Simulated scan of single mutants.
Amino acid sequence: MNTPKSEWPSSLDDAELEVLDTYLRAHGGDGDLMLDGLHGLLSAIAIGPLEVKPEEWLHEILHDAFEDEDEGNRLLALLAKLNDSISAELDVDAYEPILGEIDTEEGPMLSAAGWCEGFSRGIDMRAQLWENRLAEDPTLMQLLGPIMALAVDEGVLQADAEFEKLTDEEYDECLGQLPDVLNAVGEYWRQNAPTEDELAAMTRPRVDGDEGPPRQRSGHWVH
Rank of each mutant, 00 (worst) to 15 (best):
S6F: 12
E136Q: 13
E136I: 14
E60Q: 13
T3G: 03
M125C: 12
W8D: 14
E69Y: 12
T139E: 13
E18A: 07
D64H: 15
G145M: 10
L24W: 03
F163Q: 15
N132S: 15
G118V: 02
I147Q: 04
Q158H: 09
L12H: 07
D168Y: 14
N2K: 15
H63F: 15
P194E: 01
M202E: 10
S111T: 05
E162G: 09
E16V: 07
G28E: 05
N83Y: 14
F66G: 01
T203I: 13
R215H: 13
R133V: 06
R206S: 08
R206I: 10
E18Q: 08
L78D: 10
L182A: 04
E101K: 00
L24E: 06
L33P: 00
T167R: 14
W115Y: 15
P213L: 06
P4K: 01
V92T: 03
E7D: 15
E51Y: 00
D13M: 01
G219E: 07
L82Y: 08
G186C: 06
I98Q: 00
R206D: 06
L134S: 05
I147C: 02
N2M: 10
I147P: 02
L82F: 15
S10M: 12
D64W: 15
T139V: 12
A26E: 06
A200M: 10
Q191E: 10
L166S: 04
Y188G: 02
E105I: 11
S120V: 00
E162A: 09
D172R: 07
P4G: 00
W57T: 02
D91C: 13
G48T: 06
R74K: 14
R74N: 14
V185G: 04
P54M: 08
L143N: 03
G28F: 07
I123M: 09
R126H: 01
L140H: 03
A88R: 12
P108A: 05
V156S: 07
S87I: 06
L175I: 03
G219P: 03
E55Q: 13
A201I: 13
H27C: 05
W189I: 07
T3A: 07
T22E: 09
D168E: 01
F163R: 15
M202R: 15
D32P: 02
V152D: 08
G186L: 03
S87E: 04
